Computed example of a mutant assay.
Amino acid sequence: MAPLGEAINVTYDGPPNADTKVYRGNVDPEWTVGHVPNGGYVLALAIQACVQYQESTLHRDPIHVTAHFLQTTSVAPFEVRVRTLKRGRGFTNVLADLVQQDRTRITTHMIFGSLAPQPGSVGGLAPPSRYARRLPLYVHPSTASETNMVRPWRFKEHIKWAGDPHLRAQNLPDSPSRTDSATVGGGGLVWGTWLQLTGPDERITPASIAFLADTFINLPSLLPRSERGGLVASETWFPTMTLVIEFKARIPAPSERHAARTVGLYATGTFWGEPQGRHDSYLEVWTAPSELGAGVDQAGWRDDQFCIATATQMALSLPMEVNAGRAKYDAPKSKL
């Protein structure tokens, strides 16, 4: 059992000139939802393998990740098989499969490049442009109130968060965000928080972004009980089927303007229904001006913050009994 930075651990195992390189490790038992490893955490293992695979090249930064979760993973040894699909001047396309018990559990296609500013580059939307996207959280981390986590997450002691009450209010039945027969578009639910890794030596890394992008309150859980159709969030498992991450910028070094182990998360969900309670999520990962309970809420503090990554995913809504059953089925078999 380890903090996230230690739990995302892979080791290269094989000849240096192999066409397909194999990285190995063990899924940490604490980074699970119920009995099954968190989808973002196991994707982080695959991303970390690819980061190490690319570290000696000119294309060291993950730019885009597309992951398909073919089977549930288990708390057991794994290997990530990585190979280059195409290497170009600006980007390298890499394929990586996370394998357990000789079965491909997650298959990914990643694009690597450089997130450093390019000489002569033109364009881009950033403040002070009035068209630029701004940090979508209302409350500064220094004054944000820590909120409880009610999901069946075994990694709760390694993270803490402070939900944004202004965003939460937008989900109320009497909010102006609700729709009626005269509404054009609209609908859906929103959620946001400051999330901090609790270990004092923790740092936000490209691989950990995958975990952060899969750690939020989704649309079915945000709905009022009257709209859930009997669904009880604490008794429901929301397995990820697909997860797509686009890395917008390099993670800044810790400073007076940017926290080392805290990020802002903003999520929206619009659709939910059959089959299997399928629902969509869109999420943004932002820099934070300070750790929770630290820093100063002063005018203009949002101007220095920027989006690190965006993510979209498709997930299901299944009873937690399915979660336990999958874990039992995938448990490593004794050789005795």
Rank of each mutant, 00 (worst) to 15 (best):
K335E: 15
G39K: 02
F91D: 05
T287S: 05
E30A: 10
T11R: 13
V190W: 02
A96W: 04
T147W: 08
P252M: 03
W237E: 00
K160Y: 09
I251F: 04
V285C: 08
V94Q: 00
R257F: 11
F155L: 08
A76H: 05
F271W: 14
A18M: 11
N26F: 15
T147M: 07
P136T: 02
S145R: 15
S121D: 12
V285E: 04
E291F: 10
W237S: 01
V51C: 14
K156L: 10
R168I: 15
F238Y: 11
P319M: 05
R89L: 11
P128V: 09
I308C: 07
Q313I: 02
A7L: 05
H279G: 03
R250I: 06
S281V: 13
D214E: 06
V122P: 06
L223V: 08
C307P: 03
G295N: 10
G199V: 09
Q313W: 02
L4N: 01
T143D: 13
T20G: 12
L231H: 05
D19S: 15
D280E: 09
T108S: 11
V36S: 00
T312L: 07
A49I: 01
P275E: 03
I217E: 04
E291S: 12
N93V: 11
W31R: 00
I245L: 08
A67M: 02
D330H: 00
W301Y: 08
N17S: 15
Q305K: 04
T198R: 06
E235C: 09
P77H: 11
R133Y: 14
G90A: 12
L283D: 00
A44E: 02
N93M: 13
S129D: 11
K21C: 10
Y138M: 11
G123F: 05
R89F: 12
L115M: 10
D280S: 07
D304R: 07
Y23C: 01
H166L: 13
D280H: 05
L115T: 11
V80K: 00
W191R: 02
P220Y: 03
D28S: 02
M314H: 10
D304C: 09
R250T: 10
A253L: 14
T310S: 11
R83H: 14
E284L: 03
R133P: 08
H35N: 14
T107M: 12
E30I: 04
A288Y: 02
V51P: 06
F211A: 05
L283P: 00
A331T: 02
D164C: 06
V232D: 14
D13R: 15
F271L: 14
P127Q: 09
G300A: 08
P3Q: 13
G120Y: 01
D174I: 08
A44R: 00
V33E: 00
W153R: 05
C307W: 04
A144Q: 01
G186M: 07
Y53T: 08
W153L: 12
V82K: 00
